[in-house]
């Protein structure tokens, strides 16, 4: 296990290296470059000012030097200064990260809380109306694009019934119940997809488990059905579900961009969206890198945990 962990970590090095290079060099393709972006669209920069700024931003150095310099600083947590607002990028991101985590986490909890009972019941009542309804709902969750679902929910709950605010954010550490009202809709929208996937996963792995020999043995020995389910099958069936939810949790961090934009949720996604228009690449580079590292990290953690819980999986 330890050897495997070490190998996976070593494997991550080239991946992260490639990703940082991707994040850094991608923005070099931008027409005009960073200095052009600093100037309002109707202004013309004279050569004198351009040279001064190039020197100041270190853009006169070879591009590889710039890359390693950026990487070295980024490793120390210094992502530079926003081109537009001139604020430190690290601060801008850290200000927004908790809101994104809060939303993604809430969505995952919601997804699990709904998916596991629904998937289990669907498996136990296979091919009945209950099963069809559960599976139909999950197809709905897989199919309806989340931004349209968000619009429809706003239409119904904010504009129609006037139950929930259509947007905004309240810090849960200051007013927890006030924050619930704001986060219900974004959390549901964000949970829809993982919930659907997890329901299907629970159902199919539950069915797999129920067909296993030990279940027959237990039944033949007269153990009550609920005991078999809760004590044995569910526990085994949950492993793949939890795994996929873990992976989806990481993925949500990228997927929150649209949700955060619609609901005005001040997270990293909205930060990226807001800075894309201004092509503020220090901010974009920092935020994207953070999301990627988070994503890679969670993937790794989930993978390792999966193997820890389920030692039968071969360490290939």
């Amino acid at each position: 296990m330890l050897a495997y962990t070490v190998r996976r970590l070593l494997n991550l090095i080239p991946i992260l290296f490639l990703l940082t290079a991707f994040v850094f060099f991608m923005f070099r393709f931008l027409p005009g470059g960073p200095i052009e972006m600093m100037v309002p669209p109707d202004e013309v920069l004279d050569e004198e000012v351009r040279l001064i700024l190039e020197k100041e931003l270190g853009l006169d150095r070879p591009v590889l030097v710039q890359y390693f310099d950026w990487l070295w600083r980024a490793l120390q947590g210094d992502f530079g200064e926003s081109i537009y607002s001139q604020l430190p990028v690290g601060g801008l991101i850290m200000e927004r990260f908790p809101a994104t985590l809060y939303l993604a986490f809430a969505a995952v909890v919601l997804a699990i809380a709904v998916a596991i009972p629904m998937g289990t019941i669907a498996a136990l009542r296979k091919n009945t109306m209950t099963d069809y309804v559960a599976m139909g709902t999950s197809v709905f969750g897989l199919t309806v694009p989340n931004f349209w679902l968000a619009l429809m929910m706003i239409l119904l709950f904010s504009l129609g019934l006037r139950w929930l605010p259509s947007m905004g954010y309240v810090d849960p550490t200051q007013d927890f119940f006030g924050s619930l009202k704001h986060f219900i809709m974004p959390a549901i929208v964000l949970a829809a997809y993982p919930c659907a996937v997890a329901t299907r996963m629970t159902r199919s792995s539950m069915l797999d488990e129920l067909n296993k020999d030990y279940v027959y043995t237990a039944r033949s020995q007269g153990l009550p059905e609920w005991k078999i389910i809760f004590k044995y099958t569910l526990k085994n069936a949950l492993i793949p579900t939890i795994t996929i939810v873990g992976l989806l949790f990481a993925r949500q961090l990228g997927g929150t961009i649209i949700i955060e934009t619609i609901f005005g949720w001040p997270g990293v996604g909205l930060l990226i969206f807001e800075h894309i228009n201004a092509r503020d690449f220090p901010v974009l580079q920092g935020a994207v890198l953070l999301l990627i590292i988070f994503f890679v990290g969670i993937n790794l953690a989930v993978d390792l945990m999966y193997r820890l819980v389920n030692p039968r999986v071969e360490l290939s």
Partner: peptide, 12 residues
Amino acid sequence: AWLAIPGILFFL
């Protein structure tokens, strides 16, 4: 490496 870029971010 490619698969480590989450969701819609790449397209954005």
